[in-house]
């Protein structure tokens, strides 16, 4: 309690930093990496679609053809992996994940979701995530980990065969990888929409306050 009081006192005197510099930096690196990964991934998907009737227009694919898509995918993966690892380590080490994302309760998520949908949710204190945000942000971290692991198991089904087996084999790992991507796209849609609806949250992710 003492430390909490101290924090509050501190924030009263100095302008409050909502998003620290490392979060902002890693957020935007991740944004570039994930967009490159998605667009090049759709190009790779088109070479052998998992769903017969679902292919992606060349206007949203990156690489021009399969070889180009693969080159982009296996270049951007380094950006995604290194930045993602740094983010996870810093997030746990600084206690940010625990502080910002916990606790999450089903009741809290429901009541905050209802409040949001009836435009009664407060956005006065952007440093404190509501329960829906906590659920989405924690959830997308988990999805991020799963998409990297399923990607590794498709890339190296012999060298990392135990990982591939964990996903139920090579073919199933491809579906897992694809559905994780779909989840990330759904998340991004909501994420960007909300950032536009609450522009000061976008400002905080750019200049910190």
């Amino acid at each position: 309690m003492a430390s909490l009081a101290a924090t509050e006192q501190h924030t009263a005197t100095a302008p409050k930093v909502i998003q620290p510099a490392w979060v902002r930096l890693m957020h935007w690196i991740n944004a570039v990496a994930i967009i490159l990964m998605i667009l090049s991934g759709l190009q790779i998907y088109n070479a052998s679609p998992l769903f017969r009737s679902l292919t992606f227009s060349s206007s949203i694919t990156l690489g021009g053809w399969l070889a180009g898509g693969l080159l982009w995918h296996f270049a951007a993966m380094w950006l995604l992996m290194i930045n993602g690892l740094a983010y996870l380590i810093t997030g746990f080490a600084t206690g940010r994940f625990k502080k910002k994302l916990l606790p999450i309760s089903p009741r809290g998520v429901i009541s905050d979701a209802v409040a949001a949908l009836t435009f009664k949710l407060s956005h006065d204190d952007l440093s404190k995530y509501n329960q829906v945000q906590r659920l989405l942000y924690a959830g997308i971290i988990v999805v991020g980990i799963v998409i990297v692991l399923s990607g590794l198991s498709i890339w190296k089904p012999v060298q990392f065969q135990y990982l591939t087996a964990l996903f139920g084999g090579y073919d199933i790992a491809r579906y897992v990888h694809f559905f994780c991507m779909s989840t990330i796209v759904a998340f991004l849609t909501i994420h960007i929409l909300l950032a536009v609806l609450v522009p000061k949250s976008l400002r905080a992710m750019i200049i910190g306050r």
């Binding site: 944004a31 570039v32 967009i35 490159l36 667009l39 060349s58 206007s59 949203i60 694919t61 990156l62 690489g63 021009g64 053809w65 070889a67 180009g68 080159l71 982009w72 270049a75």
Partner: peptide
């Protein structure tokens, strides 16, 4: 050009502020 080209790359140019994808340097980097 075929490898690095593609209409979606306009968005990338906006994001990064530099014309990474229409140049040969992207090809070399890849």
């Amino acid at each position: 050009r075929f490898i690095t080209g593609g209409a979606s790359l306009g968005a990338l140019t906006l994001l990064t502020g530099c014309d990474v994808v229409s140049s040969d340097s992207a090809e070399e980097m890849l």
